[in-house]
């Protein structure tokens, strides 16, 4: 067992982990931050996406010990300081970007990662960026629409299929 310390959503946290403890298990089990989901065992679905030192990673495919000393943000840290939804979260609600919601934490974290690097992405860029995030419900159109809307673009002409 090793002792690790990291900043999660602005707060310093520490804990004891085994070598094999995954970052997602540390977040969900030790810190009880269960907003980050596990949707697969093959590193393909992206439901577990969080940011580590500002970049998007699959927390199911990173060891907790690798994040020792890092600055981590999760879906729980996305809302505005007053508790209201972030622009991306609000756009998902407004444009019906979710159905069951299982993929949504990962989608929101992937979207936040994209918009930080590319403030006004094209529809094709949004779709390329979401290749590692699988949704079994929505068919993606409204997720793409929500992200375009969150970036301040007019989405009235986007397909509403």
């Amino acid at each position: 067992m090793a002792n690790i310390t990291m900043t999660v959503n602005g707060k310093s946290v520490s804990g004891e982990v085994e070598g094999r403890t995954l970052l997602v298990d540390f977040l969900r089990t030790d810190l009880r931050l269960t907003g980050t989901h596990v949707g697969c065992d093959t590193s393909q679905c992206g439901a577990c996406t969080v940011h580590v030192d500002g970049i998007a990673v699959k927390s199911c495919t990173m060891l907790a010990a690798e994040a020792d000393g890092a600055d981590v943000s999760t879906i729980e840290g996305q809302a505005n300081a007053d508790g209201s939804l972030s622009a991306i979260q609000a756009a998902f609600q407004e444009h019906h970007g979710l159905q069951c919601g299982f993929c949504t934490p990962g989608m929101v974290m992937a979207a936040a990662d994209l918009l930080k690097k590319n403030a006004k992405p094209t529809e094709a860029e949004v779709r390329h960026h979401l290749e590692g995030n699988i949704c079994r419900c929505t068919g993606y159109h409204n997720i793409v629409k929500a992200i375009m809307a969150a970036s301040g673009q007019d989405v009235s002409q986007l397909a509403a299929e």
């Binding site: 992206g46 996406t49 998007a56 990673v57 699959k58 495919t61 992937a110 590692g132």
Partner: peptide, 9 residues
């Protein structure tokens, strides 16, 4: 290669 999160690691 893969997707953005895979490329980041």
């Amino acid at each position: 290669i893969g997707d953005p999160a895979v490329r980041n690691r």
